[in-house]
Design a protein around this nucleic acid. Structure first.
Length: 267
DNA sequence: ATGCCTGTTCTACC
DNA sequence: CGGTAGAACAGGCA
């Protein structure tokens, strides 16, 4: 939402605002607000509060204040802007430029040293949202803090396709389409394997690979920097063994995998 | 110009 | 109940 890696980068950027007072919270696009509040309601609830903390839960960035919290979901093309800086990531399919017309909401801030700043959310496609005091209790364990046990619990005995289960934020929070394809490719698991069919070695390898992918792609700078990514296109081949990649919808999303080392059944 | 896209949520259906 | 498919949201981009 982008995905966990981008949400983490946004949260880090937003932490520059901790300690600042929200002089005014601007809602440019009322349809971006969830929970039945108007833009005025949101402003009234937030204006004058102080930002105390910024958290990330899965793909959601939560700005805590001494009043309500603000949950930011970024949809497919949402990005965070700090002052005049450009977007703090470059989405591979999103717009390359920044545009004031895409700013859906913004914090107008005054820091303790008196300087003024703006933390703005830009979202060309408007699939993101903001919500005050959002209930995030339905989210599964965070993908960045998975253990073999919590992963096993998330997959359960489900016969749903493995990738669909990993994409389901109620099971595991933070993974999106690109991170899932990269992870399953690296670990050698077929995306349509029944989620509950993994044996202990496979579970443990999957857990380790999720951590590795998050760390690795995080270092490289985004969910779009995977080894598989350049081949997720017609004619793409497996970077490991050169087999032609297969493509199909799994869990409602376009999925690419290698027929050679991601076999449909165990083994 | 047609189709595709780092996401979520709803309905219909099996 | 568990699960799947499709649509809807929306707009830039190749």
């Amino acid at each position: 939402m982008p995905e966990l890696i981008e949400a983490e980068a946004y949260a880090r950027a937003a932490r520059q605002a901790v300690g600042s007072v929200i002089e005014h919270f601007v809602v440019n696009d009322p349809s971006w607000v969830r929970g039945g509040l108007s833009g005025q309601d949101v402003g009234a609830a937030l204006d004058g509060t102080i930002i105390t903390e910024v958290d990330r839960v899965g793909k959601v960035v939560v700005v805590q204040t001494d009043g309500p919290s603000v949950a930011l979901r970024f949809g497919m093309t949402g990005r965070l802007l700090w002052d005049g800086d450009g977007p703090i990531d470059a989405l591979i399919y999103g717009p390359k430029r920044a545009d004031e017309a895409w700013v859906r909401c913004a914090f107008r801030l005054r820091a303790p040293d008196g300087t003024r700043h703006r933390l703005a959310v830009e979202d060309a496609r408007r699939l993101g949202s903001l919500e005050l005091d959002a209930d995030l209790s339905q989210l599964g364990p965070d993908a960045a803090r998975l253990t073999i046990e919590t992963l096993a619990g998330a997959l359960g005995n489900s016969r749903t396709p493995l990738k669909a289960a990993l994409l389901d934020q109620r099971r595991v929070a933070g993974l999106g389409n690109l991170l899932c394809d990269e992870t399953l490719w690296r670990v050698g698991l077929h995306p349509a394997r029944p989620a509950g069919s993994l044996d202990p070695p496979e579970l443990s390898a999957l857990c380790a690979t999720i951590s590795e992918v998050l760390a690795d792609l995080g270092r490289r700078g985004g969910s779009h920097t995977g080894d598989l990514q350049p081949q997720r296109r017609p004619g793409g081949v497996c970077p490991r063994d050169s087999a032609s990649l297969l493509r199909r919808q799994v869990g409602g999303r376009t999925t690419w995998w290698c027929p050679q080392h991601q076999p449909p059944s165990p083994g």
